[in-house]
Structure formats: structure tokens, C-alpha cells
Design a binder for these strands. Sequence first.
DNA 1: CGATCGTTTGACGGTGCTCAATCACCGTGG
DNA 2: CCACGGTGATTGAGCACCGTCAAACGATCG
Lengths: 279, 279
Amino acid sequence: MVVITEARHTSPEVGEGWKGSRCNVIATTPTTLHDLLHAMGMKTDEPLGDSNFSVPVWRVRAGAVLQHEGARSEFVHVVRAGTFKCLKTSEDGYEQVLSFAAPGDVLGFEAVCRGRHVSSVVALEDSTVFMLPLRDLSRWRQLSPALDQALQYALSRQLARAGEIAEMMAAVAAEVRLARFLEWLSNSMADRGQSPWRLYLRMSRRDIASLLGVAHETVSRSFGALAEWGYLKVDNRSVEIIDAAGLHACTRSTRGMADEAPRRPAAAGRHRAAVAMAA
Amino acid sequence: MVVITEARHTSPEVGEGWKGSRCNVIATTPTTLHDLLHAMGMKTDEPLGDSNFSVPVWRVRAGAVLQHEGARSEFVHVVRAGTFKCLKTSEDGYEQVLSFAAPGDVLGFEAVCRGRHVSSVVALEDSTVFMLPLRDLSRWRQLSPALDQALQYALSRQLARAGEIAEMMAAVAAEVRLARFLEWLSNSMADRGQSPWRLYLRMSRRDIASLLGVAHETVSRSFGALAEWGYLKVDNRSVEIIDAAGLHACTRSTRGMADEAPRRPAAAGRHRAAVAMAA
DNA sequence: CGATCGTTTGACGGTGCTCAATCACCGTGG
DNA sequence: CCACGGTGATTGAGCACCGTCAAACGATCG
């Protein structure tokens, strides 16, 4: 039913000559619709008579580009395993990260209304994705109400997440932005059944900085600050949340307010006097 | 088919006692599916046999709350006329604006996955919306492929817009953020067939500031700067774009680059200075 | 006309952006 | 085995930008 004509992708325009210039996105053995629905978080695995679906699964190596901004879009991807970042590349080469994607997330749906991808998608680690051909999508949704419902739910989540990302970027202080990001990541881990305390960041500091709208040096400093506050233990990309309540309190610092002093004089009182405001 | 049980809404938790405490959201005469599809931008008005659809239309007065954050969601709204702002209210009362909605936009779909609204929606002017009952939505989509397609397109647009908003907020300089916002607004106007040059802002400076993640005074100053640059003519909420090319050049200022120097302190420099460099 | 809110402008202080240097971690090749 | 770039992370110094506080000014509505 679905003919895979091309099993090789290269990344000429975005990551010109990315690490390992061959076979970064390759087809593997297809799987069932049931598997797809399970990955999308559908608990109710109704028997759904259509078992003749054959859903292509592709393997994406770390650093490989799954979707090219501006390219004609032919597939909607659903993350099966791994992590991705979505980004827009400015003409001066700056990469603006828009979001991170984890298993169950839908990638490339923004292209439905234009036929071309509006952002690039890059794998942050070796990952696998389901490939849903755009031209068959509406037919598939008609054939399988379960798939249709799963897609609507996923899109709804995606929309809700966009609001959460805006909340992160809107914070005044850089540490608050990072705290919100880490809490969001922690909640994502919990939703996925993994430990919300021990995080391993698949993305670089620069990627986080881009998402949060700050300089990457500021992200480094903010990590140091949150660690010094006693909320985190940071070792490169391994982050352990020590004081979730304190981190959450740090999250609640909004623009135009002066009530909350994120003071945590736990360690040696060397942290800067950001708390020396009104009584 | 659709029973409207309650024709009055008040806004107890969000805008406690908003201007005019009665009948701010009221039902009016229903309309046809064809009308809904037209408002959603579907050019291909196929006859679609189901003319027995009766789509409720409600009227929302300026300042009225259409959706309450945290409230159980029973409807997905499609803007028919007017303008809205979507926002999250922090516990300290700060309003974080997430997006603005114009005719054709879908409101409240983020609630599909949780059953509760994740953000509030407030009318910025007297407006009208289509009410699509959530419990009937999937059935309606099955009955009318045209409605289904229109919804998918609208959701795709919405997702793409989220990326654009992130791009606005990520800019370093405040004037760049405002320039990107104005260009986005201008493009929205053009898509809607209205003049992209003469804009009337339905939202306050504070709302814009919240969306862009800056202080509202900074928005005022940025308006002044863009006007002094010669890109705009600003009169309170009436904005006229004088030099679209210059405004667009201002838009292209990304983090980590040193190309631009929009320094034009004196009013003598009349023509665009952004083209002069790039050497 | 007065009250309230929105907008603008000013002054000041602090945060974070920029430019650097340093260190740690790799994979490569001598 | 250790030099050798290359990338990412951390830290420091300086200064411009913007957030905060404050006070006019203007618009809108009762």
C-alpha cells in the first residue's frame, strides 16, 4: 500500500555534511496500527478490525534531519522512540529551537495547511519514527476511528504545549525560565512513566538557550544558580532535582510582581543579592 | 439536535465583575455548515449533502470571557467575527497572553485532551463565534469530510502559528520583537483580504507586551523607536506601516549575529539605514 | 465633568548579552 | 601512548538594554 521509494536522506541545506554523511534516515521493518496507537498513548486498545495496516517505521540517527524546513512535506511523523528538536533556521544561520519532541509526539503536522514544512526536525539521539503518508492520512483516519482520536488528542496536547512554551519564554528572570523548563521536562518524564527526578538532557545548552530565548552562557549560569539555591544537582547533562517544591516556587515568579523572593540560603550565602528588595 | 441549555455566562473567577456583569455571551440565531466552512477559509464549497446541520452562533461582547481556564470544556469555538486574546492567569494575577485569534481561528481545542480549558479566552471587541459541541465533534467530522478537512487545516495553521509566536518572543531586542509582531499582524490582515498597511490594534499595549515577553513601557518605547526609524506612523492604536522593507529588515536581527546597527539617533537620517551595512 | 484606565516619557539600577579565556571531553591520527 | 583540533560547558569582565518605579498626559465612559 505504501511504497517507500527512497531509503536515503542527506542534509544538504541545514546541516551541510552532518556527522556521517550516509544513511542517517533509513527504513526498517513496518509495524502494526496497534503498535502506533500504543505509542501515541491510547489505552483503549479496541480490536479495530483493520489489522491490514502496515505502518512504516524509520530509524533516525542522532543529528540526522528528519524534516527540512521549506521542503515539500509528504509524511507526518509520530515519534516511536528517542528525542527530537524542532527549529527554524534564519538566513544568517541562527537556529531558533521551537520545541522538543518525545515518544508519542506528532511531527510535521504544521505542514498540512501549506504543503511544505515550516520547521526542521533534528534527532537528538538515535530514534525511530512512524511515517504516516500525508496523502493517505485522511483515508486512514476514516478507516480507523481509533487512529483519528489518537491524532486529535496528540494535536490537542501539542497545542497545549505551545502555550506552556510561551509561558517559559515569557518569564522575566533567566533562572525562572530554566526552572519552568526543567519542571516541564520533569512532568513529561512522569507522564511517560519515567523518573521525574533524575533527568538526562538530550539537548545541548545552546538548544535550551534558544528555546528559552536567552544566551547559552546564561543557561549555564542559571544552572549554577539553581544548583547553588539547592534545587538541583547538575553534572553536565545529568540533572537531579533535589527540591522539587523549591523549584516549583522558583517557577512562580511572574512579571510585575515583587512578592516572591527565591531565597534559599541553604549553601554558603554567596549567592547574589537578588533578594534584597522590599520588606 | 443541539440543545442550548444556558444562554448566560458570567465571569466570576477571571475578570471578577467585568464591565457589564450580565449577558456578555449570548446565543443568537444558528447558521448553516456552509457558513461555518466559509468562515474557516474553505474555498471549495462542495454541496455536501448534509444541510441539516444547525451550527449555533453566539455573540460575545468586548471584554467578555468566552472560555475560563480550568473550566470543563464543552465546546470548540471558531471565530466568525471579531478578535480574541488567549491567556493564562497566574495565581498572583498576572495575565500571560499566549496568542490572538481572528476570524477563522479555532479556540479551545487544546482542551480536547484534558476535558478542561488550559487557557482563558477574552473578546477584544464585540465578536461572534460558532459553537461546536465537543461531544458531537467527532460525529460531525465523520458526517462532513469538508468540516473535517477544514478543522485539520485550521489546527495545522494554529500549530504553525505557535512557532511564529516563539520566533517573536525569542528576538533579542524589544524593537525586533515588536517588528516581528507587526509584520505577523500585517500578514494576517493580508491573508484576510484586508489592507496590510493600515492596522488598528484591538489589543492594549499591555497585551502586546505580555505576548512578546517585555514590559508594556518597553512596547511603548519600541513603537516610538520604529516610528522614529521611519518604518511606522503610530497614533495610539492606529498603526500605518510606511516602510515595509525596512520593517522586514528590522525583523532579521537574530541572536548571536552582529550584522545590524539600527542606530539612527537623529531624526535627520530619513531613509533606511539597515541597507547600508551588510558589507 | 470627574474617575478610571491606557499610553507615554523620564530616571535609575540591575540583569543578561557580548566578547573572551579556560577547561573537559572526544575521535583522529601521529 | 600522547599531541592535535573540534565541540560543548563553564566562568569572568564590561556595558548596553530593559525592567522597575514614578509622574504626566490622553482617552473613554459613566
